[in-house]
Structures are given as structure tokens and as C-alpha cells.
Design a protein around this nucleic acid. Sequence first.
RNA 1: UGCCCGAUGGUGUAAUGGUAGCACAAACGACUCUGACUCGUUUUGUCUAGGUUCGACUCCUAGUCGGGCAGCCA
Length: 605
Amino acid sequence: MSAESNERSAEAGAPDPTDFIRDIVAQDVAAQRYPQIVTRFPPEPNGYLHIGHAKSICLNFGIARENQGVCHLRFDDTNPVKEDVEYVDSITRDVRWLIAGWADHCLGFKAKGASPVTATIDGKTDFRLTSVSPASLDTQVTAGTAEPFFASDYFEPIYAYAVELIKRGKAYVDDLTPEETEAYRGSPDKPGKDSPWRNRSSAENLDLFTRMRAGEFPNGARSLRAKIDMASPNIWLRDPLLYRIRHVAHHHAGNKWCIYPLYDFAHCLSDYLEGITHSVCTLEFEVHRPLYDWILGSLDLPRPLPHQYEFAKLNLSYLIFSKRRLLQLVEERFVTGWDDARMPTLSGARRRGIPASAIRRLAATVGVTKYDSVTEIAVYEHAIREELNPVALRRLAVLRPVKVVLTNIAAGEVLECDATNNPQDENPTTRKVALTREVWIENEDFAEVPPPKYFRLKPGGEVRLKYACIIKCDEVVKDAAGHVVELRCTADLSTRTGGPNVDRKVKGTIHWVSASHCVDAEVRLYDRLFTVAEPGATDDFRKYVNPQSLETVTAKLEASLAGATVDGRYQFERLGYFLVDAKDSAPDKLVLNRTISLKDTWAKK
RNA sequence: UGCCCGAUGGUGUAAUGGUAGCACAAACGACUCUGACUCGUUUUGUCUAGGUUCGACUCCUAGUCGGGCAGCCA
């Protein structure tokens, strides 16, 4: 829990970020263009959220947070064949996790089951749906009386707007087949041509559209199209489709419909219905903006219109964010699931022990622009360490143990040492760790033939056992095969805390645990999932999955870790940040994940 | 080869006509009972060519390079 706290996060005192979108919002606020700033995060429930989505979530909720506004979580669920409630649930959970303690007071949910209300404004029929009070959101969610927004809740008013467009002569029912539609559309450098059905009468269009809804026609037989310009240089203005026929049940709307609006038609209207002021999306929708504006502008709507702004999505080196490819990793068993700790999904990050605040910190550092960039993974790793360092409890653990016998300590004797829980604290607390005759040290911390500048233990050399004392290696015991099985050392107990020679310096300090006062645990060490910086740009990203992305070891942990729970964030000294695995750990069989290693300027050389 | 968008050190980003700054990375050094953290120093940049201007990363024109758009996906 402590790791989720914002108290020591940069966010607490940091100034609000600025970028070109926030500048626009600020201008709109200054001009009092809207009574309140309302943004939205509109995922399609057809996959798990990943770090790339997190950038969008942070932007949209950040804008709301900085302007006393609200940000709606809205499912853009207009294509029932691809969507599923499993994703609705995971997305809702992940969004709430990401913004917890930061922007949950801005989260816009609606009353359960609510759909847009009809009103008359200036003699015009209007539909509207607003969010419940964020202040009471938690109790309402718990009570089951609030839920996210769904575009599918707007099918009725969206249908009414389509009828209105037909009446205005701005939409028509087309009988062209999908193949013909494609052929008629032309290509980027060649204009399209008008459908023979383009100039049907309003009455005929209305009749046909009503019958489409009534289910009289099979899939693909007809469609509703906007009547714009088949010769437009912008393909999305060449009479784009508004509705298609799909005789299929919807995961949220049930069996009510057999015609479903397409993204372009549903999205801008959903924004309007919810009173969205700033509709922020990624760059690929830039060419759709004229259509977004055309639809809203063609309906003579009485309330202020939302506006669309586009930014470049996040790319991180050594990672992939494509839903299709992520799904492949899951289905082809490169990972154990969507929440595998190596996955760039939010559920994977959470299981890995990455604090939500670190992801928010990443979003703040990469900024928001229209330049399609690739951010080095090191920026993300740095953000994780920055968030974990001040909150993680220091503990001693040995991943790959080698036995050390301290020959001048009697068997059964226990020397208690004070170990600091977190040196970053203003007033650090301590705990007791046991020093006994036999201890484990890290395999890497002993070298029979040390490389130059090796600070750790070597034959005849000295090293400090952290929080304990300096030891000297007297003898290296090997088995018949020549492997080191035991190091026989003497402890200089005068260098213990409180001892006369505490201040004696040796170059190296290493971690250790008592062999008689420790617990075994399965520890999972993660490395990058891919071996190349841009796996998405290769011929087949699966060929570049890192075979060493997961290594499992049986580690020795200091005894105090015996009761560790998922809530604890630990730094195993000199090794990295760890937490208990939420799925596979049990009280009698601890399983821990390494979130990330400590920066290691020695190993690099 | 139609339309739209973009280009600042290795990477990401700031400077909104007036000293090119910050972060990450890298290198070196200091400190250190974590080769971590912290601190200090250093290396490296405005895509090109014209134009406007006292002055251009910024405005204009052309070019180069990169990205997006031809789902009844979002």
C-alpha cells in the first residue's frame, strides 16, 4: 500500500504539466467557453489496457484534474462482434488502479442503467447524459448504482440523429455491396464515384432505414451513408458509412439492435451527448476530424460542440503495444497471460509491482506532442525506481547462495544486528537481523580470481557484511569437481555497530542472510521481453522474444519476510525491488517477483 | 504519386520573434555499511535552401525525410 501512496511522489509538489492540448484547454477555460471541462477515455472493450493507453488516461484525467473537471470512462462499444464483458471489467479495474489517489475524484461514471434524457432547448429536441457526482462515486460503485458510460447506451438517440440527417438530405440508404462500396470509393489519388442510390428521396431513405432497423435485410445488404463528397481528397469525406447491418447480439445492449453505428458516427455524438468539451485521441484519427465536425455541424445542435484534438501515442523501446500482437503472445504461450509480469499491460505492470504513480510519472516526462517518437525504455525504468526508492523497505535476501562459515562464532550463537528499513526516511527505523555461524552470501560476491577493481570477497580478502561486521576469507572449500562449496571466514566482531572498530573501512559491503534464520522463496527475475529495440518493426516480432526474459531461482530471505504480503514493497539490498506475487504466492510457499533491478554501473563494465 | 500531419543532442521534450534549457542515457569524479541513492563536471542539437525581420527553433515559400489515411474495425 505504501508504494501506491503519492506522498513522496513527484506529483505532490510538482507544477502541472503543459503541452499544446492543455494550452488549448487553458484558453477555453480563460474564455469561459464551457461551464466545466469534460474529457473522456474511450476504450473499445476488445483487449487489455497497456502502458500506451496509460498515456491517454493520464492526459485525459490530468486535464480534468487540473481544471476541476471530470473525465468519463466510456466504452466505445459499437462493434459487438469484437467485444466482450471480460474486457469491460479488466479495463474498468485498470483505469481505477491507474488513477487511484490521483484523479479518482475526477472519474466520471453515470447512474446505473441511465440513458440520455430528452429535452427541448430553443425549440430543438436534445439528448443528454451527465455523470454522477464524483464525490459520491465510491459509495455508488460499491452499491452498484453507478457504472461507466457506454456508447451502446446511446443507440436510440444516435438512431434519432441518423433519421434527422436523412430528413435534412445529408444521409442516404445505399444498396451497394461492401465490395462495390470499396470500388466506388476510389483511391487516395483518384476520386470516387457516386453510388446509384445516392439521390433517393428522403421518404424512401426513411422507409428503408426503418426497415433496416426492423431487421428486414441481411448483413451487408444495405448501409446508411453520409452524403458528402465522393471526390473529396479526404477519403473519410467520400460518403462514409454511418450504419451497417449486423444480426448479432451486443454484450451490453442485448438483442435490441441489428444495425450498429460506426465509430465516426457514434463517437462524435457520444461526445456531444455526454457534454464532452475536449475529445482527445491519437494521430491516426486526424483525417477523421473533418468528418467529426461535419456530423455535429450538420445537426444544428443546441449545446456547445465538443472538439477533437490529436496527439502522438506512446512507443517504448523493447516493447510492443499492438493489441493483436499482445494477444498473440498470450495465445501462443510466450507469456502466461495478459497479466504476466513481463507484459506491457497495466495488469501485468501491477502484478510486476510497478506503482501506478511510476506510470503517471512516465506519462508526465514523455509529454504530449504530435511527433511520432520512440521513448527509450530507460525513461520508464527510471520512473519506476524513482517511485520505489523512497517507499520500499530494505531487506536482505540472497538469490544464488554460497555458504560462509564464520569460524569464530559458535554454532547456535545468535548475534543480533540492527538493520535500517529505509535510509531515505527522515528518521529511519530499524529491525533486528540474526548473525550466526553459517550465513549465505551471493554467489557473485565471491571471486576466486577477482577481476580488476573487484570490491567483494576474495581469498584472503575482506568485505563487510552489511549491518553486521567485516569478515575475512581464510579458506575456500571445494568439492571433487572443483566447485566452491563453502567459504571459511573469520568475523571481526570489533567492527560491529557499537564495537570499537565500527569505522574501519573496507572497499566492499555485501548482503547476506543467516542460514539458520531465513526462509526459502521462489523468486522470479524478469528481463526485457524482447531482444531488439523495436520488435514491432521486425519481420516477425516472435523471433525476438528474449529466451531469458524469465529466470526462476530459489532464494534465501531474511526471516522477517516470512509473513510478507502483496501490499509490501521491498528493496532487496543491492538486488532490486521485489513484491509478493498476487496469484501464485501462498503463506507456506512464498513467490516473489522482481519489479526491477537496481541500477548497476559495475555489471555494465 | 492525392490529401493530412510532423521534424530541436543518442532518446524524449522546452523555448509561442529576443541568452537553445530540462529529463533520461553516456563518460568522468566526489560521497557511500547498497558499485544503489545523492552531489559535481563533461560530451553531443534547431532537416536543407531561399525569403521576411534590427533579430528566426519560432513566420512565409520550396524541397528532403518520416508518419497517417483507400474496414460495413476503433
